[in-house]
């Protein structure tokens, strides 16, 4: 669908967390690609494996994680990288924004010091230049009176400003790929939209690829080009955001959209998806969503449904999805 070389390509990624007693199968065969200038949103609820998938792109997982599959960023195999080149990759061509701006900045260093540190690590420039660059970045993320904020400690900034500082830090070395792990979840609604719009704008200006993890459909609708819906460690539906929001293919996505608040009358109950996500220590043999699915058939419980492509650019892993003859080829 896209002619350019993908920025990041993940093929059949599997991540397990091996513990003493049990093994958690967090990600079970995820494949996707992100092209320059594209925003991919990974949508899913807690424990669906979305953050783990994101972190695998930087190999930023604890030692007990066993990663399998193929993860390529800028043509390089991340899983086979040496620690040294991995350090160059992190914060260099790929960087990350975290969920909690409260804890993602070190409380004992000023914002300027922290941004400058990253700049210096990757470019090797001197302190004065790093500071100038930090100031430039704070202006870029539109922090008011940036000069003074440079010497502010994280606890002196509001949540929104802190998240902007975090973004500034992530952008410090002009990354080609920006990973965002629910960067707006901890912010209140008005700040959330500001940060989203800022991110979208910066992403477009700098031509970055972005992978944005969220559990919020509204956020996904706001920022994404393409959405990958994850459930139980698999991508169950993938496609362009407008078409997915209008006509979701997978029963899980349908359930998600049905359970959001919109123009319905006040006394009407919201349709919730019954049941709860499977225990990933013992993932079900078939479709992960089958136990909660209203359309589940017998085959769903025994085998993982194959990916189907009913329209160009769209995928759904569900047996209930009809594939027209033309598109099947």
């Amino acid at each position: 669908m896209n002619k350019t070389e993908p920025l990041a390509e993940v093929r059949d990624l599997k991540v397990r967390f091996v513990g003493r007693e049990d093994t958690v199968h967090a990600v079970n065969g995820v494949s996707f690609a992100v092209h320059p200038g594209e925003v991919l949103c990974i949508l899913g609820e807690s424990g669906s494996g979305k953050s783990v998938t994101l972190r695998s792109l930087m190999r930023l997982l604890p030692d007990r994680a066993r990663i399998e599959g193929d993860v390529r960023v800028g043509g390089q195999d991340v899983l086979k990288m040496s620690n040294r080149s991995l350090r160059d990759l992190r914060g260099g061509s790929v960087s990350m924004i975290f969920q909690e701006p409260m804890t993602a900045l070190d409380p004992v260093y000023t914002v300027g010091e922290q941004i400058g540190e990253t700049v210096r690590r990757h470019t090797g420039c001197d302190k004065a230049k790093a500071r100038a660059r930090a100031l430039e970045l704070l202006n870029l993320v539109r922090i008011p009176s940036a000069e003074r904020r440079l010497d502010a400690y994280p606890h002196e900034l509001s949540g929104g400003l802190r998240q902007r500082a975090m973004i500034a830090m992530a952008l410090s070395c002009d990354p080609k790929l920006l990973l965002a792990d629910e960067p707006t979840t901890a912010l209140d609604a008005t700040v959330q939209i500001q940060v989203l719009i800022l991110l979208r704008k910066l992403q477009a200006e700098m031509g970055m690829g972005m992978i944005f993890v969220t559990h919020d459909l509204g956020v996904a609708a706001e920022i994404a080009d393409n959405v990958a819906v994850m459930y139980a460690g698999r991508i169950v539906e993938y496609g362009p955001v407008e078409r997915m929001m209008k006509a979701p293919l997978h029963p899980y996505t349908q359930g998600l959209l049905a359970s959001t608040v919109h123009d319905q009358s006040r006394d009407q109950d919201i349709d919730a998806i019954p049941g709860s996500p499977p225990d990933m220590r013992r993932p079900p043999p078939g479709c992960g969503f089958a136990p909660r699915c209203v359309k589940a058939r017998d085959v769903c419980r025994t085998a993982v449904p194959a990916e189907r492509y009913p329209e160009p650019g769209r995928m759904a892993a569900c047996v209930a999805v009809e594939v027209p003859e033309m598109a099947a080829a």
Partner: peptide, 21 residues
Amino acid sequence: MSESAVLTTPPAAMEDQAAPA
């Protein structure tokens, strides 16, 4: 399924309204 459902419209002015330092 109503389409505008989950699409939040951005407020007109998104530029910073953070208090001055």
